[in-house]
């Protein structure tokens, strides 16, 4: 049996969990095993029922009155107890922050290996996986030796596809937990206020790098983004120099974006920046160096000084829009 850990927040199942179930279903057909799901938290009955459409035949509902927000040790202990009782061959989760953390904790408790962010699994005499390294700019083929096999599924590696299971049951699981298991827990949540278009959702992103030169220099990028209804982002050079807040950093240790158009200004095209653009449809690069590596990864290029080109572009777009 394959056990998939389902991530949910405020009554909604994470898309990445549905992708995980899609990959798990493919694996289940190869090894002739059922797919079970596990959900932790309160009011999860209705959520669980929606998993039948993704091929889940049994959902384990882990319940304890003390579950509110995330309590990693209590959740981990619950999962380890469930695993001890239902004995899956494979335990998997989405390769999100939470999924990777939970599975790492379960792996540590069981004393087994764990492969993070897999895009493919190959059951057989040995259990092979392909996983993302370097934030996705490198792939690794590896083998997981001991049992059960633990891996997370990289977000967007497979598209979520429904395929209803013939039967479906839910089963309550009551873990045995002590007060001590709640020593790490979320004591409160702070909602952040929404301002403007967020980077991950923006349809157009104007990005700036070292070539922008200063915090002041980003003004023209702001202006261009505003004209196009988009958001501003930057490279690590821009955030490290304090020209932009870290929240605006695009790349391996920053945000992942997926706009229709990314306008890269004064950016060389380092791999750790480019992996943040995986979902981007088109890239337009403005760079004064014709040899800049960004030109071999962009769709459109303009060679020249961004401090000349961007203001002229703003002027022209303003004119066109006024017509």
């Amino acid at each position: 049996m394959i056990l998939g850990i389902i991530e949910h927040d405020r009554g909604k199942i994470a898309e990445a969990s549905l992708e995980m179930l899609t990959l798990a279903r493919g694996l289940s057909q190869q090894i002739g095993a059922a797919v079970h799901a596990v959900l932790i938290g309160r009011e999860i009955q209705a959520l669980a029922a929606s998993l039948k459409a993704y091929g889940v035949t049994r959902a384990h509902l882990v319940q304890d009155e003390r579950f509110r927000d995330f309590a990693p040790e209590a959740w981990t202990k619950s999962l380890v107890q469930l695993i001890g009782s239902v004995r899956p061959q494979v335990v998997t989760a989405a390769g999100t922050d939470r999924g990777n953390e939970l599975l790492a904790r379960v792996a540590a408790s069981l004393g087994v290996g764990m492969a993070a962010n897999c895009t493919e699994v190959r059951p057989g005499a040995s259990f092979g996986v392909t996983r993302l390294r370097w934030g996705g700019s490198l792939l690794e083929e590896a083998e997981l030796l001991n049992e059960p096999k633990l891996f997370t599924v990289a977000p967007h590696a497979v598209a979520a596809q429904s395929s209803p299971a013939r039967e479906f049951v839910t089963e309550e699981f009551r873990p045995s937990l002590e007060e001590k298991d709640f020593r790490v827990r979320v004591v409160r949540r702070i909602e952040s206020e929404k301002t403007g278009v967020s980077l991950p959702e923006a349809k157009v992103v104007v990005g700036g790098g070292r070539g922008v030169g200063s915090a002041e220099g980003f003004r023209i990028l702001e202006e261009l983004a505003q004209l196009l209804g988009g958001a501003v982002g930057g490279t690590r050079v821009a955030t490290n120099n304090g020209w932009r807040p870290h929240a605006d950093q695009i790349g391996q240790t920053g945000t992942q974006i997926a706009p229709d158009l990314y306008i890269a200004c004064g950016i060389s095209g380092a791999i750790q920046h480019m992996v943040g653009l995986k979902g981007t449809k088109r890239i337009l690069a403005i760079n004064k160096d014709p040899e800049a590596p960004i030109f071999s990864r962009a769709d459109y290029g303009v060679i020249g000084d961004l401090h000349e080109i961007v203001p002229a572009l703003i002027e022209e777009i303003t004119k066109v829009k006024a017509r």
Partner: peptide, 17 residues
């Protein structure tokens, strides 16, 4: 990569794109 031009002269081509 499709090079749209050099410097400010490229602006009309960028706008068309």
């Amino acid at each position: 990569v499709e090079i749209l031009g050099q410097g400010k002269e490229a602006v009309p081509v960028i706008v068309a794109k």
